[in-house]
């Protein structure tokens, strides 16, 4: 009896130890991608701007001096100013331009005599502060736009590291949807028109369920543009299916959210 209890305890301990040791290996960690290293392409010119070592500099200066001397002995002075024929318009060119202006029959277009602008006008030209009334609005718009694009890039960085898809997998999916999405080009570029669609996918990439996250906005008055964008995004997703999803890791991408942002396209 005691023997069997002993055996039982022994084997249980073995089983517990085994599971305790092997379980951590079964846990699926998100794929640990190496951090992105940004690479700058630099053009290498023929001449380097690294300063010469003092010794080399001396030698080079000596050589240059010698060269100079040789040049001055043999060649005539080369200090002649270069002519710039391209600066002076050819007589033919001038003629053509004049003729063209003459051809206009519209009195609006009568070419006025060139006048010298008075000091007062010059002042006006330089004083750009008063354009503010017009520019300010544009600036605001731009600021909003910039803000938004910053947010987007942050979220995409978050995606590739914290969640499931690898960069290449995400790119493949993006490229596929880019091809299917006909962006309605009449939309205003300065409105917040981000459409978020949540998808539930099957293993083969076909869509089980699609849901526009801000669905109520579609039927709100004055949100015509949002509705049109949301519809175009839904069309794109449906047209694209089956989506190009990775062969493994279904659990990771079973639910996926697509953020359609046309701002970049509409700014043209």
């Amino acid at each position: 009896m005691t023997k069997s209890i002993f055996y039982s305890i022994f084997f249980h301990i073995v089983v517990i130890l085994l599971t305790a040791l092997s379980l951590p290996f079964m846990a699926r960690h998100p794929i640990d991608l190496p951090p992105i290293v940004s690479v700058d392409f630099i053009q290498i010119s023929d001449k380097t701007n690294i300063p010469y070592a003092p010794k080399a500099r001396k030698i080079i200066e000596d050589v240059k001096k010698e060269e100079k001397r040789v040049v001055s002995e043999q060649a005539p002075p080369a200090a002649k100013a270069k002519e710039k024929p391209d600066r002076i318009p050819l007589p033919n060119e001038k003629k053509e331009e004049k003729e063209l202006v003459k051809k206009k029959q519209n009195p609006e277009e009568i070419k006025p005599q060139i006048r010298q602008s008075s000091e007062f006008e010059k002042k006006e030209l330089v004083d750009t502060n008063q354009i503010a009334a017009l520019i300010d609005k544009a600036k605001e718009e731009e600021a909003i736009k910039k803000d938004k694009s910053n947010k987007l890039t942050q979220s995409s960085v978050k995606n590739s590291f914290a969640t499931g898809l690898s960069l290449s997998e995400e790119d493949a999916l993006k490229a596929q949807i880019f091809g299917c999405w006909s962006v309605p080009l009449g939309l205003p570029f300065n409105e917040n028109l981000l459409v978020r669609i949540k998808l539930e996918l099957k293993k083969d990439g076909t869509i089980l369920k699609s849901e526009i996250l801000d669905h109520e906005r579609m039927n709100r008055p004055g949100q015509k543009f949002y509705k049109i964008l949301a519809e175009s995004a839904l069309r794109a997703v449906r047209l694209c299916q089956p989506l190009k999803v990775p062969p493994t890791g279904y659990e990771k991408w079973k639910n996926i959210q697509l953020n359609f942002d046309p701002t970049e396209m509409l700014q043209g």
Binding site: L152, G164, L165, W181, A236, I256, T263
Partner: peptide, 13 residues
């Protein structure tokens, strides 16, 4: 897993 988000910023013309 956290929900995967993919930003679609381009489309076809």
């Amino acid at each position: 897993f956290a929900l995967i988000e993919v930003d679609i910023t381009r489309g076809n013309l």
